[in-house]
């Protein structure tokens, strides 16, 4: 590798690091994940019976748990998404979101491997999850999972974070 090439790579790495440490970028990613999850929860909350049928369609869960998943999961998505947007306990919220994404990735991979056709039900119903689009869903979920890890491990002060603002106000009041 020539000196010029090394310099180019170093500059690129510097720029990526700058972007990753940028508070506005972190807020953008956090909002993006939050909005996606709040939107994804909407149809599931509005039509729990349809969502239960989609959970059944994954063919991975015991029968007794299907309705419970369909009742609870959408609210977990909604609250985690809202918390990310408002910056309330963002680290824990994104931990839950990454946990869910990890579970979706496993579920999609298992069904892709065994060639099981199903409706994903990710953001709306009637989205056929045939093998070709299952791959796309898997890629989408993996990208969101990586973005989630970025938000999780971001260690600078976060922009637009309500809990952080509260902590600052408290510190100022006591100090």
């Amino acid at each position: 590798m020539t000196n010029g090439n090394r310099e180019d790579t170093r500059l690129k790495n510097d720029n990526i690091m700058k972007l990753c440490n940028n508070q506005w970028f972190e807020m953008f990613v956090r909002w993006l994940l939050g909005i996606v999850f709040v939107y994804a929860s909407y149809h599931k909350i509005a039509e729990p019976a349809q969502f239960a049928k989609i959970v059944y369609g994954y063919d991975l869960f015991p029968n007794f748990s299907i309705n419970l998943i369909a009742i609870i999961l959408p609210y977990l998505e909604f609250y985690s998404g809202m918390a990310l947007i408002m910056g309330i306990f963002p680290r824990s919220a994104v931990f839950i979101i990454d946990g869910m994404l990890f579970a979706f990735i496993i579920a999609l991979s298992v069904n892709l491997l065994r060639g099981h056709e199903f409706d994903c039900g990710c953001t709306s119903f009637g989205e056929p999850g045939y093998t070709s689009s299952t791959t796309q869903l898997l890629i989408r979920d993996i990208i969101m999972f990586i973005l989630g890890l970025y938000v999780l491990f971001f260690d600078k002060p976060r922009m637009g974070s309500l809990t952080q603002l509260t902590t600052l106000v408290k510190r100022r009041a006591t100090g």
Binding site: I71, Y75, L76
Partner: peptide
């Protein structure tokens, strides 16, 4: 914090349902 989220989600979910 995780307990808060899960608790809130479970309570709301069952109440709304």
């Amino acid at each position: 914090e995780l307990l808060c989220f899960v608790g809130l989600a479970v309570i709301t979910a069952f109440t709304v349902n």
